[in-house]
Amino acid sequence: MSETATPEQGAEIDDQSKRDFLFISTAAVGAVGTAIAAWPFIDQMNPAADTLALSTTEVSLEPIEEGQSITVVWRGKPVFIRHRTAEEIADAVAVQANDLIDPQTDADRVQKPEWLIMVGVCTHLGCIPLGNKAGESRGDFGGWFCPCHGSHYDTSGRIRKGPAPKNLPVPEYSFLSDLKVKIG
């Protein structure tokens, strides 16, 4: 191979680079097309429109007496709604947030202090904690107790003892009226 190209060789190289450009751009267009075509095949696994339509639940709070809880199903999971007593609220507020495993004040977790609304799924490995029904064990802190691996939650649903790493999560919700709440 000589260093200086003759005009003929130059044309050949020019032609070569044109070919390469064509091949590479075609491959690129084809690859992009294939990638885009793959998206519908992936996206179909995301929640379908009918699933999403049920992603909000409206709950009437009227029948819940003070000191009672109910469980409603939201997105296939239980949501605990507790009408807290003044004593429970006082207990929850009195706790120093900084000392907790997952530091959160009670005010961070409720919109109206008497209504505690949270997803009733233990943050450890997904069991449903006890304590929402009368007569169930409520753990060492008067809230909820997960029987699977012994996590204790307080009256604000915060993890106080046991293997769970996080407080019981609070779903997005809003009060439509004083006694009507929309979850999700």
Partner: peptide, 16 residues
């Protein structure tokens, strides 16, 4: 339209 462009390019590649 995409397939038209891609097929055109594939034809050019095949010709080349």
């Amino acid at each position: 339209l995409f397939l038209l462009v891609l097929t055109g390019m594939l034809y050019a590649v095949k010709r080349k």
